[in-house]
Computed example of a mutant assay.
Amino acid sequence: MGRKRELHKGLEPFLNCKDYTVSGETYEVMFNPDYDMLITSPVPVDLENYYKSEDYISHTDSKKSMLDKVYQSVKNYTLKRKLSLINSFDTESKNILDVGAGTGDFLKICAANNWNVLGVEPSSDARNIAKEKGVVLKEDLLEIENQKFDVITLWHVLEHVEMLSDYISKLKELLSDNGRLVIAVPNHKSYDAKYYKEFWAAFDVPRHLWHFSQTSIHKIFSTEEMIVEKTIPMKFDSYYVSLLSEKYKTGKMNPVKALYRGFTSNLKARTSSEYSSLIYVIKKH
């Protein structure tokens, strides 16, 4: 509870964002200057109901809309990139845990490349789809005890976690001494975030509870005696997020405008390092 109080201390109003996926409700996004992070307020008591939508794409393999098709085709490319990253680590037993495993595609490609895989996914629908692919997932991280992993991955998951400090402590407990924690999160300091403001799709309130910057990730993990070893850009995210943001802002995708904004964001990030989303490779101190 101490960390939660600390993160919620001295908050300043930043902007109001709408839930475009499920409820249409408006939430305040507050700024914590000490951590350079944003926090969604309030958190709904029935938060799990805000994931119940066919538009919540990480829980489905849908290819109905243009956006679905873009997401699924880019996903195949990014899966190979993710695999290449974890294969670059010097590991002994090749044990991997994927938290927020969705429909199991990442673990499926890992298993095909000689990794011993385990995954966690709270959505029963997503778990059922994963099971059809031969990937059996647990519902909750707390179900995993007395195991150590060389690699633990959270691809766009940490922003959803309610008890942030407790969760990070549990991840550290499950990580082997020389293991790597791989965390991908949106970056509220990116150009596309600043351009689209309250329409920025990666705010995704109230499902995204925390909106991180590089400073906040470094500070939060250093408190847990962990350090960021490497930061890697996710360059496709600026395009996908800009497509959705255009839809929220204007009611249409405006692919040409979105591609321009995504390109501009990546171009500016070459100097600033503030890409739309970033992967952090973290290890124990």
Results as ranks from 00 to 15, higher is better:
Thr40Pro: 10
Pro42Met: 08
Pro42Ile: 09
Val43Leu: 10
Val43Gly: 06
Pro44Leu: 06
Val45Gly: 12
Val45Ala: 15
Asp46Ser: 10
Leu47Ile: 09
Tyr50Pro: 00
Tyr50Phe: 09
Tyr51Ala: 04
Lys52Ser: 05
Ser53Phe: 08
Glu54Cys: 11
Glu54His: 12
Asp55His: 12
Asp55Pro: 10
Asp55Gly: 12
Tyr56Ile: 03
Ser58Lys: 09
Thr60Val: 09
Asp61Pro: 06
Ser62Pro: 00
Ser65Lys: 03
Met66Val: 10
Met66Thr: 09
Met66Cys: 05
Lys69Asn: 14
Val70Ala: 10
Val70Ser: 06
Tyr71Met: 09
Ser73His: 12
Val74His: 05
Lys75Pro: 08
Lys75Ile: 11
Thr78Lys: 14
Lys80Trp: 05
Lys80Phe: 07
Arg81Phe: 11
Arg81Leu: 14
Ser84Arg: 13
Ser84Pro: 07
Asn87Gln: 14
Ser88Ile: 05
Phe89Gln: 07
Asp90Glu: 15
Asp90Thr: 13
Asp90Leu: 13
Thr91Asn: 12
Thr91Phe: 07
Glu92Arg: 14
Ser93Val: 11
Lys94Gln: 10
Lys94Ala: 06
Lys94Cys: 06
Lys94Asp: 06
Lys94Trp: 08
Lys94Met: 09
Asn95Ala: 07
Asn95Ile: 00
Gly100Val: 04
Gly100Glu: 02
Ala101Gln: 04
Gly102Leu: 02
Gly102Ser: 02
Gly102Trp: 03
Thr103Lys: 02
Thr103Leu: 00
Thr103Phe: 03
Gly104Thr: 04
Gly104His: 00
Asp105Glu: 14
Asp105Trp: 11
Phe106Met: 01
Leu107Trp: 04
Ile109Val: 14
Cys110Lys: 00
Ala111Met: 13
Ala112Gly: 07
Asn114Val: 08
Trp115Asp: 02
Asn116Ala: 03
Asn116Glu: 00
Asn116Met: 05
Asn116Ile: 05
Val120Glu: 00
Val120Tyr: 01
Val120Pro: 02
Glu121Gln: 04
Glu121Arg: 04
Pro122Glu: 03
Pro122Arg: 02
Ser123Asp: 08
Ser124Pro: 06
Asp125Val: 14
Asp125Arg: 14
Ala126Tyr: 05
Asn128Trp: 07
Asn128Gln: 12
Ala130Trp: 04
Ala130Phe: 06
Ala130Gln: 06
Lys133Met: 03
Gly134Gln: 01
Gly134Phe: 05
Val135Phe: 01
